[in-house]
Amino acid sequence: MAKKRKVDNLLALAVLSTIVERPMHRYEIAQTLCERGKDRDMAIKWGSLYTVVQNMAKAGFLEVVGSERDGARPERVIYRITDAGRVEMADWTRELLTTPEPEHHRFVAGLSILAVLPPAEVIELLGARLDALGRILEVARRELGDLTGTLPRLFLVESEFGLAMLEAEAAWTRSLRDELIEGSFDGLAQWRDWHDRGMRPSEVTASIERGVAEN
């Protein structure tokens, strides 16, 4: 089970992994994260970054080492990682690599109430999702291909994982859609019947519960 952390926003870990290289101000941290494509893994917003850096400083993971001013721009506070921050970064990384945690996925939420839509519409919607996934996969493969050979693989493994997950989702979605089209999906006839009879969701739920009780 994941432990309770003083700052539990994953953006904090990204900040620690960046600032460990050298002291930086917040704008430089954000710029470095975006240059390395971390904005694809998480939302990097100025307000969130400001709060995360402040909280990490309060927790003792970062410390102020100076400031600088560029022309008329506001003064920029420069931070560096502390020994406690290095320990937190390593410990958090170990936890993420070893401890599976349930992650909320919008697609799963939709699948959980699939019965509210008729099978024919679900087939159409899954087809639209596959089209969208195809476009996303095309971009992801191209971006990974462009980076391969220019960066050590050590810095590309998260992109490889993301691509693998997208491919797995597309394969599973395609398989489900094929079952619905071919008619091999278990319970498909009953599902169609519910919608042909115009049953309300509550009636569908009651019908399923009766079937479970009878079995």
Rank of each mutant, 00 (worst) to 15 (best):
A2C: 08
V157R: 13
V15N: 06
F155N: 06
M42K: 06
Y27W: 12
C34G: 07
R129A: 09
M165Q: 13
V15P: 02
S48Y: 05
T205V: 13
D193Y: 09
G66L: 00
I123D: 04
Q31M: 13
Q190Y: 02
R80F: 00
I81Q: 08
A128W: 03
E95N: 01
P119L: 02
V122N: 02
L62V: 08
E160T: 05
R40Y: 12
L117T: 06
L147V: 02
L33R: 02
A57K: 09
I181R: 15
E138V: 04
E121I: 12
A206I: 03
P102K: 03
V87P: 07
G211T: 06
D70I: 09
A213N: 11
M24A: 01
T99H: 10
V108P: 04
L144M: 04
L49Y: 01
A120D: 15
E169M: 12
M42C: 09
M1N: 14
W194V: 01
S112R: 15
F107C: 07
R76A: 12
E158I: 08
E143F: 03
L166A: 11
G71P: 00
K4P: 05
Y79I: 02
L188E: 03
R200S: 04
D70M: 08
D178W: 13
E103W: 11
R210A: 14
P100W: 01
R5P: 04
G110Y: 10
I29G: 01
V87Q: 14
E88C: 08
F185W: 09
D70L: 10
A115M: 13
L180E: 05
F185R: 10
G198H: 03
T93I: 14
